[in-house]
């Protein structure tokens, strides 16, 4: 009895969580333009999507921003972790606090404050400001996933490499980096996902005429909902889901190897 109740409970949770996305995906294959009725299976909205220049442009922007911002954030975040490891305990915990707070901040606060910052510095809105913003909110995620690896690191392997004649840089890339790599990779993927996913911060920092997929969907929907948008949203969902599965898989595999 109890276990059946449990299963129903879980099923209900999953239903409520995934029903909206499920409906969205079903509608993206709907021949009929109205939401009310099923007009048969079609891929035409997906085809239309890939013929729409503006959407392709937005897709390109999204991927470019996600790629660049997560790469740069990964480098900055990793370097920050190394620097923090060398700090005294007090300074380290203060730094960790400072880097963690932006993650807890509401996106809208981050978005508006970045917008105000750019205005007050006289920076022109466009791809540049989006990129800067994404790097900013991505760094904490990288730090969060690299730091635990850093703590596990055996400092004496670095010293052993120096002892055997490595320069500090060579010792880092040959000995420390391979140990950090799983953390760096998952930090990169996390940052990439966050960047793909973001709407609010991009919305406030993008300026006119530049769009990523999420802001494009928003503008399109204001004009009236087109089934292409269902198709686009479904694709984004699948992409993000895949990335999340990847992130969760990598540490599991690592554990198995150990």
């Amino acid at each position: 009895m109890k276990s059946i109740a449990k299963k129903i409970y879980i099923a209900l949770i999953i239903l409520f969580l995934y029903a909206p996305i499920g409906i969205l995906m079903v509608l993206s294959f709907n021949e009929s333009k109205t939401r009310a009725k099923w007009g048969g299976f079609t891929l035409k909205w997906y085809l239309a999507l890939f013929q729409n220049e503006e959407i392709l442009r937005a897709l390109f922007n999204t991927l470019l921003i996600a790629m660049l911002s997560s790469l740069i954030a990964t480098v900055i975040g990793t370097v920050a972790c190394i620097a923090m490891t060398g700090m005294k305990r007090r300074a380290k915990s203060v730094m960790m606090g400072i880097t963690n707070i932006p993650m807890l901040n509401a996106d809208i606060v981050t978005g508006i404050s970045l917008m105000l910052l750019y205005i007050s510095l006289g920076i022109k809105f466009g791809m540049g400001t989006i990129l800067l913003s994404h790097i900013t909110f991505n760094i904490p995620y990288v730090i969060l996933s690299v730091m635990p690896r850093m703590k596990q690191l055996n400092v004496s392997t670095y010293e052993a490499a120096l002892d055997l004649g490595s320069s500090p840089l060579h010792a880092f890339f040959r000995v420390v980096f391979p140990d950090l790599l799983p953390g760096i990779l998952s930090g990169f993927l996390m940052a990439f996902t966050m960047s793909l996913d973001d709407f609010i911060i991009t919305h406030f920092t993008k300026g006119v005429g530049v769009d990523t997929l999420s802001t494009k969907i928003y503008t399109e929907i204001k004009k009236g909902i087109k089934p292409e948008m269902y198709a686009l949203s479904s694709l984004i969902f699948v992409a993000v889901l895949t990335l999340l599965v990847l992130i969760n898989l990598s540490p599991a595999e690592k554990k198995k190897a150990e």
Partner: peptide, 13 residues
């Protein structure tokens, strides 16, 4: 000089 560290410090990978 070369050092033999207390906790081996071998390169595990």
């Amino acid at each position: 000089l070369n050092t033999v560290f207390q906790k081996y410090a071998l390169f595990t990978h």
